[in-house]
Write a protein that binds this DNA or RNA. Structure first.
Lengths: 328, 328
DNA sequence: CTGTTAGCGCGTTCAT
DNA sequence: ATGAACGCGCTAACAG
């Protein structure tokens, strides 16, 4: 691979001069510049960002840690991040944590060894050890989706979104509202959305029965089974079900339709996420849009801020939008 | 940031010794090793892959160029790539070409400047200039999705998939089959799938009318409009429509259902891609599964081969599976 | 305007 | 078993 030295020799100048035309810093004589450019042209020389980074202590790479690489949310977010970051010449180094805390920490180290200029972490569980790890990190880091104490984080407004959705059901006249959540270890999706539901029920003096509550994971079949459980064990059946995820909600619909129920006549359903599926499933699913793409952009911007001026850790909460559709 | 020199000083040994315990090469006295380890522990020192790479000429990073980062296909593929590559300690540097040839070439250079060990290119249009660019590349590269002459490429079997789908329609008794494609500049999706359709029609002595053919892009609304065009201009209306993409097909369904038609009673539909949508749309869409995740794995494996032993450019064609569902 | 010198952080002979 | 010396490719400080 051709290096700056080769170019220097070919153009019979010093490396320094080559470097100067490369970064067009200071002035280089027209003739020298031309000879250098010619040599570069001829050899197809491309400077090593690697060596440069070693010298200037900056890589123009930011690491992005995802819980799952092939989900709609992830790809939307990454898209937004890239849109913003690429404008400033940064590239993205991907890291897939596969929902494993161990891997999250591992990747944090890996990215550090690569001396990335910044890190964006889409966290799932906010473990204490992870928290410590990040705070000790000498690299600007911002978390997306989960609030991590002491760390710049941008979060969705899970609590209020859940409140609104629950209230929407109530306004439509529903009183018996089932809830399908996920593990509360997931502060955002598991805990906050559930709290929004519970609080809103309480504020409206509605009782919440145990057999209306179920827990699933992040996929469709788990929604199916959760609904089945509720349906089979409820002494009093719900007239509406709030699933914390579109995919869960779609699993719910599957089960109910299999049972011959009519949605929304017999029972209403809502999810969260504004997945593409939610729009084309029949009946179309009521959900809330988190603007993931925009969230990615905002997060990237926060990171850029942090990388430029080492300021305090900020917190920001994103907006959302209820999308009322036929499922209710 | 703490460096190998700091550790050396703290442990009162030379850098060389530190390097030795890091890569546990040759023998280091127990005491020395302990002192080094202790210093590392205390400082949280993490070696710079950067500096190391400069020395050993290997970065353990591969670049992945995508046409569009937030599509189902892309994310499945990237997932597969990551699954395979991460097992060998490689990380992924993402590059988004946004379907622009110019950016594709630009990213090729960018990745080169980062001295990635390999490149995976999900190409869309196989331009001559791109072809030259890749062949001149001093970095092992493999293309996915498009056959690029002289370059290791793994492709989907677009031609036969299209044939099978068309034949399926014919076997069901259809004679008037419409076709919605994309620009033929896209060899795989545009040209080959169309050829499969045309050839199969011909082999069955079926005529293809101009007004049964339309062209769209890669989104749902474009399918809607293409179908509208066909529907409004056809002097003789088709009883089936083959869209080269699930998203196009879903747009088709939208239009037809809006017109009050019953699918599949009045008209049958099929797409390609096995998108999640295809499964949950009503009626469920007949499509073909390209096993994108597996494709990513295979591509990664090819790249690994190429990176280890500089062998010739290979070609391989992937399998596929017809998924017959209610839309026909 | 240009070259010399001196590292950036690390691995690798080659001695000892 | 250990260290000195050198170089990977590049930029920056300093002279001239």
């Amino acid at each position: 691979m051709v290096t700056i030295n080769d170019i220097a020799k070919m153009a019979s100048v010093s490396r320094t001069t080559v470097s100067r035309v490369l970064n067009n810093s200071s002035h280089v004589s027209k003739k020298a510049r031309e000879r250098v450019l010619e040599a570069i042209e001829k050899t197809g020389y491309i400077p090593s960002e690697h060596a440069k980074g070693l010298r200037v202590k900056q890589t123009n790479v930011v690491g992005v840690i995802l819980p799952k690489i092939s989900t709609e949310t992830s790809s939307r977010v990454v898209n937004g991040i890239d849109e913003e970051l690429s404008r400033y010449g940064y590239q993205i180094l991907l890291a897939n944590s596969n929902l494993e805390l161990k891997k999250e920490i591992e990747h944090l180290k890996l990215l550090q060894s690569r001396r990335v200029d910044g890190i964006i972490l889409m966290a799932t569980n906010v473990d204490k050890s992870l928290q410590e790890e990040i705070k000790a990190l000498p690299i600007p880091t911002v978390a997306l989706g989960q609030e991590i104490p002491g760390v710049t984080s941008v979060v969705y407004d899970d609590y209020h979104a859940a409140c609104d959705l629950t209230q929407l059901f109530i306004n439509k006249g529903h009183r018996k509202i089932a809830f399908i959540g996920v593990s509360e270890e997931d502060k955002a999706v598991g805990y906050l959305r559930k709290k929004g539901y519970l609080d809103t029920m309480k504020n409206n003096n509605l009782s919440v029965e145990d057999f209306w509550m179920a827990q699933g994971t992040f996929n469709i079949t788990s929604g199916y089974h959760a609904m089945k459980e509720i349906w089979e064990t409820s002494s009093e059946r719900p007239t509406a079900v709030f699933a914390v995820t579109d995919r869960l909600a779609i699993g719910v619909m599957e089960y109910l339709q299999e049972k011959g129920l009519n949605i929304p006549k017999d029972i209403s359903i809502a999810g969260i996420g504004a997945s593409e599926l939610s729009k084309y499933v029949r009946p179309a699913l009521t959900t809330v849009d988190y603007f993931n793409n925009e969230a990615g952009k905002v997060t990237a911007r926060h990171l850029l801020d942090k990388m430029l001026e080492e300021n305090e850790s900020k917190k920001s909460k994103l907006g959302y939008r209820l999308i009322e559709r036929d499922s209710l």
